[in-house]
Lab assay of single mutants.
Amino acid sequence: MTFKLIINGKTLKGETTTEAVDAATAEKVLKQYANDNGIDGEWTYDDATKTFTVTE
């Protein structure tokens, strides 16, 4: 399955996707991606669209 991350950061905005077997696995990968890029904020997840959003 494809999961999307929408980034609403102070210095970085955009989106990325990852392939994962489930939402929990995708969340780990996407949170690591955000952490690697210095993004720390509030996370939400929409199961209907398989989209995570992080807002700083």
Rank of each mutant, 00 (worst) to 15 (best):
L5W: 02
L5Q: 00
M1F: 15
F3W: 11
A23D: 06
F3P: 00
D36Q: 12
N35C: 07
E19P: 05
K28R: 14
K13Y: 13
G14Y: 13
N37H: 13
A23H: 07
K10I: 14
A34F: 02
T53P: 01
N8W: 13
L12I: 15
G41Q: 01
G9K: 07
T18V: 14
T55Q: 08
G14I: 15
N35M: 15
G9L: 15
K10P: 10
K13T: 12
T55F: 09
Q32C: 05
D36A: 15
A23C: 06
G14S: 12
A48M: 12
E27N: 04
A23W: 08
Y45L: 02
N35H: 14
L30D: 00
K10N: 15
T53N: 05
F52S: 00
K28Y: 12
D46V: 05
I39W: 10
W43Q: 00
T53G: 03
Y33D: 02
Y33S: 02
T55Y: 15
V21G: 11
T44M: 11
L30S: 01
T49N: 08
E19R: 14
K10C: 08
I6K: 09
L12H: 14
T55S: 09
E15L: 03
F3Q: 00
A20P: 02
Q32S: 09
L30Q: 00
V54W: 02
V29A: 08
T44L: 07
I39D: 01
D46E: 09
D46A: 04
Y45A: 01
A48I: 15
D36P: 01
G14W: 15
F52V: 01
V21W: 12
A23P: 09
E19W: 14
T25C: 05
E19M: 15
T49G: 05
E19T: 15
K28M: 15
A20S: 08
I6P: 00
G38S: 08
T44R: 09
N8R: 13
N37A: 13
T17F: 15
T44V: 11
E27F: 14
A34R: 01
G38W: 05
L30P: 00
G38R: 06
L30M: 06
T18M: 11
K13I: 13
F52I: 01
T25D: 09
A20R: 03
T17S: 15
D22F: 03
E27W: 13
G38M: 10
V21Q: 11
K28P: 05
L30C: 03
I7N: 02
Y45R: 02
V54I: 12
G14Q: 12
L5P: 01
Q32V: 08
D40G: 09
N8Y: 10
A26M: 02
T11L: 14
T2K: 08
N8E: 10
T18I: 14
D46I: 05
T51V: 07
E27S: 07
N37T: 08
D22K: 03
D47I: 10
N37Q: 13
A24G: 11
D22N: 10
K13D: 06
N8D: 07
